[in-house]
């Protein structure tokens, strides 16, 4: 699907809400995944994902192309709803990272597999200790594939601020991984 196709779908949905289904089908999994990583359970992820799309279909008429993909608009809605959700419940994001870790390939040697499992556990611990905004940034970048500018649009920050936060986050991760014995050798 090209950008032109998406623009046509948006225009159609603005003229007739029944055409919103195509946009929904295109983005429901990505939005759900993003929400799930923020709230950490299926029940709230489904509830919030529903709210995202209800709000989107209700406000599709006010959507204006500002140079960012339509997905950034959806992520922005999701981000705001999740922020309200956390505020109302005074909860911190809790994600069962153990469930998110990909299992090893079965054909690997047992030794290397065990080592890889250990590394993943350590990485899980390190990610768990990150601030919520840093984890959200990593999720938007690695899982959703958004650019720094698009992430800035979602989080309400400038592209420069996102780039800076991203580098600080990687630096923190690298430092914490090195502390835990996962050496990432780099010529300084």
């Amino acid at each position: 699907m090209t950008q032109m196709d998406e623009q046509a779908q948006i225009l159609a949905a603005q003229q007739d809400p029944r055409a919103f289904g195509a946009l929904y089908e295109r983005y429901v999994d990505r939005i759900y995944s993003y929400v799930y990583h923020r709230v950490g359970n299926v029940h709230d992820a489904e509830d919030l994902t529903s709210r995202v799309f209800f709000r989107a279909i209700s406000h599709i008429g006010t959507y204006k192309d500002q140079g960012y993909p339509f997905s950034a608009w959806l992520y922005r809605i999701a981000h705001n709803l999740i922020a309200n959700w956390h505020r109302d419940r005074s909860r911190r994001p809790l994600v069962s990272l153990e469930d998110l870790v990909i299992s090893s390939q079965p054909e690997e040697h047992p030794e290397s597999r065990a080592q890889e499992e250990d590394d993943r556990e350590l990485l899980t611990d390190v990610l768990q200790a990150l601030d919520p905004d840093r984890r959200e940034l990593l999720d938007l970048k690695f899982n959703e594939g958004l650019s720094n500018a698009e992430i800035g649009q979602v989080l309400g920050r400038s592209e420069g601020a996102i780039k800076s936060l991203y580098h600080r986050t990687l630096l923190q991760l690298r430092r914490e991984l090195n502390k835990k014995g996962i050496e990432i050798d780099v010529e300084l």
Partner: peptide, 11 residues
């Protein structure tokens, strides 16, 4: 390492 640690979740 991060690319493999944050897999997408499907509804």
């Amino acid at each position: 390492r991060l690319a493999g640690a944050l897999p997408p979740v499907e509804a």
